[in-house]
Design a protein around this nucleic acid. Structure first.
Lengths: 254, 254
DNA sequence: AAGTGGTCTAGACCACCAT
DNA sequence: TGGTGGTCTAGACCACTTA
């Protein structure tokens, strides 16, 4: 590599653990993404060029890219190139939207901005976003409709420091998804989420928004969205009316 | 390969689409697993030997194994070999048990068999198990406790044809998990699951088992467990008291 | 036709594990 | 010490896309 091979802390002295070249290449490529050298929608340099740049063989470059592709940080397209993914509706639906109809069909949600406010981080949000308690945040409430029926209420919290000068107006101009807005407006690319689910009941406010009776059981989803290097950028509480729709999960395997 | 390279149906005549050698190797290795040539706990032949057997280079064998490992059908151990996974408690907890405490900690569930009966497949189970309506099935109800409190009620349906001569006694002898019983008793290895979640409320019967009041909101999980080649082998409805525990999901990324 | 990623080879050498 | 998987090379050739 162009830089000297880094040594991982050896569990015992005298054990010269050297990071594999492909791991180091992967680290450098992740950095190129993080610092914006390669931007969403761009093709990254061809594999042969990366092999030259890093002074390694093409097979080793491919192994690094393989892992980045598996982690959804790059997209390969044969004959065209390798690209930095851009957040659009299809990507959202495929990777980040887990609600499906009873027959398994995925439907594009129609999003309506219901509330937007600046505020301070409470304990839970500060914890999940790894920011200080009371730090400035934006709070957004969206109501999502599926097939013209309100089904989901999203309460989103994001750090003010990461989204400077965010205004309510930007949501109206938004062409597709909020993750697209994060990416194009603030250079924040969501690459992964973790979610925790539990059953709750609708309070009066949520019930009204979802047009159900109070005490209707709802699925509550608490999501943390992460960007490169597992840095949290969004905390979201969703409440889903699972009368006609369900949460889909495919785990413990491929 | 030892067999002629298979041709995938060409979308248009004159387009000679040949399956890559590593895909064909992967198919043959999956077959070796399916028909029991390689059995749980066994090491499969060394990569160099597989390369000879299939008449391909070692790098191509490795690519096939890479994919099987990514799909949890094999486990690599450097210096020792590549193994067919055996279902034990740790594997269950890591891959197939998605309930965690509020602090994220995983706890081994203590399983108590509550009911066992032979019966006929209803519409839903027949559909999910891809068997005929009314086909013979076994129905099992388990109550799972976490830290000495009942938290989950599992209603399991499996096809009688696939688990011949299953008896209630076998559950008492069971050393670890029901997937271990499937594997050691009937040669059925669960490799993957798909789950659909929704919010429900406890009926009187479930409420009693979970020691909660009726109408307590519960998380309902409908799981289909699959073996090799995505063949369904178990349909399970879980009802989870999410007062102290949550469902954990990590999707849309690595 | 030129450029891209995808497949495949035939090695070499290393790290790790069991004996 | 011998066998295993893990890394890495320097190519060749193929499939696909774009111009």
């Amino acid at each position: 590599m162009s830089e000297p091979s880094p040594r991982i802390d050896a569990p015992f002295p005298g054990v010269p653990l050297v990071a594999p070249l492909y791991k180091e290449a992967k680290r450098q490529m992740t950095q190129a993404l993080t610092r914006g050298e390669w931007r969403p929608g761009d093709a990254i340099p061809a594999e042969r060029r990366l092999a030259e740049r890093y002074g390694i063989s093409i097979g080793t470059v491919r192994k690094a890219i393989d892992e980045l592709v598996a982690e959804n940080m790059l997209i390969r397209q044969q004959g065209r190139g390798t690209f930095v993914p851009r957040h659009n509706r299809d990507r959202l639906l495929f990777y980040f939207f887990h609600i499906v109809a009873e027959d398994g069909a995925k439907v594009y949600p129609v999003v309506r901005l219901h509330a937007f406010a600046a505020g301070k981080a409470d304990k839970l949000a500060a914890d999940r976003l790894a920011i200080a308690l009371g730090a400035p945040v934006f709070k957004i409430r969206n109501v999502l409709s599926l097939s013209d029926r309100p089904v989901i209420v999203d309460d989103i919290v994001i750090a003010g420091a990461r989204f400077p000068r965010l205004t309510q107006r930007m949501f109206g101009e938004r062409p597709s998804t909020i993750y697209h807005l994060y990416q194009t407006g603030f250079g924040v690319s969501v690459v992964r989420t973790t979610e925790r689910l539990r059953a709750t009941v609708a309070d009066a406010e949520i019930a009204a928004l979802l047009q159900v009776e109070s005490d209707t059981p709802l699925l509550q989803i608490r999501r943390v969205a992460l960007t490169y290097n597992d840095v949290p950028v969004e905390f979201r509480v969703s409440r889903v009316n699972t009368q006609r729709y369900e949460y889909w999960s495919e785990l413990g395997g491929s």
